[in-house]
Simulated scan of single mutants.
Amino acid sequence: MGKNLVIQTDFGTSDGAVSAMYGVAISVDPDLRIFDLTHDIPQYNIWEGSYRLYQTITYWPAETVFVSVVDPGVGSNRLSIVAKTVDNQYIVSPDNGTLTHIKQQIGIKEARVIDETVNRLPKSGESYTFHGRDVYAYTGARLAANVITFEQVGPEIDVNQIIELPNIEASINQGTISGTIDILDVRFGNLWTNISRELFKSGGIEYGTSLEVTISNNRHQVYKNKMTFGRCFADSRLGEPLLYVNSLDKIGVALNQGSFAKAYHISTGANWKISIRKIM
């Protein structure tokens, strides 16, 4: 392995939980290089945990080990697994939907259930509520440090059995492109949709095209307005909305130097729909 360990949680950093995971990993091998993906996943939000992995993982080299802990079912009978991607990266995670985007958008070629009789922090057997420390950080560190091989993680499971969250595909029908608001660009309040650049441009849309954008939540219309498709934020005036291609090659919605999400009280998930059509 490459001795890179990347950790994501919904723990925040206001207490010692993340530091304890670091300590476990360093105790396995002090030469490990440990990085934070984020610890600001909203509590229990498995969907966002899945998306943040997808947003990040392709920029890391092969053999990188990711530990993702968004685990409202900790201590239950949900499985703890390590998935191997088609690009030979590894993700240590509960099997609760965290791997949805990786499985669907990138690809998983093999997965194994963590054998906790071997891959568990010594003397932690009576603890059932901190698998992030006792199982995931420990197993991830051992894998990244070459203390164990992938085969020694535990028994293999069918990749097709890995749990996936509901994920609606974007579509185009009679010139109207429909999708969902998958995630927010949190810092700036931009909306990131599941509409790919290829699908978007298949509607004959070019830079500078005027479009009508409608956003609804559970069929209740929240926003409807005209905006243009721009290359960058500077293609609109200050405070004006625009559509653009984000860093994942998907369509985003933004306010120039403002938060679109806050301005219109927009959130994310399968119930948040967006439709886009050219203004004739």
Results as ranks from 00 to 15, higher is better:
150 F>G: 10
103 K>P: 09
125 G>N: 12
17 A>T: 12
165 L>P: 01
151 E>M: 08
133 R>D: 01
21 M>G: 04
124 S>A: 15
22 Y>V: 11
70 V>S: 04
71 D>Q: 03
274 I>P: 02
28 V>F: 03
232 C>F: 05
192 W>C: 10
137 A>S: 15
186 V>F: 01
84 K>H: 10
120 R>V: 12
145 A>R: 00
214 T>S: 00
266 I>P: 01
19 S>Y: 03
184 L>A: 02
161 Q>A: 12
98 T>G: 04
17 A>S: 14
234 A>W: 12
62 A>V: 10
95 D>C: 12
92 V>A: 08
277 R>T: 03
200 F>A: 03
82 V>T: 09
125 G>R: 14
131 H>C: 09
275 S>Q: 13
46 I>R: 05
85 T>H: 11
150 F>A: 10
165 L>R: 07
216 S>W: 04
241 P>R: 04
230 G>P: 07
116 E>P: 00
146 N>T: 08
128 Y>S: 12
193 T>M: 08
8 Q>P: 06
24 V>P: 02
236 S>C: 10
217 N>G: 02
173 N>G: 04
197 R>E: 15
158 D>A: 09
107 G>R: 01
97 G>R: 04
275 S>M: 11
36 D>H: 07
208 G>R: 13
48 E>Q: 15
166 P>S: 00
278 K>H: 01
236 S>V: 15
271 N>P: 08
64 T>S: 11
29 D>L: 12
66 F>D: 01
224 K>D: 00
244 Y>F: 15
54 Y>E: 04
57 I>E: 02
270 A>G: 06
235 D>H: 03
157 I>Y: 15
20 A>R: 14
206 E>L: 05
260 F>Q: 09
4 N>M: 13
99 L>M: 11
11 F>C: 11
213 V>I: 09
192 W>S: 10
120 R>A: 13
266 I>T: 03
18 V>P: 07
127 S>D: 15
174 Q>K: 09
278 K>T: 03
64 T>V: 01
76 S>H: 05
225 N>I: 12
57 I>S: 06
178 S>M: 09
73 G>L: 02
46 I>T: 10
268 T>N: 00
264 Y>L: 06
43 Q>N: 11
127 S>N: 15
2 G>E: 11
96 N>A: 11
139 T>V: 11
19 S>C: 13
20 A>S: 15
215 I>A: 03
201 K>D: 00
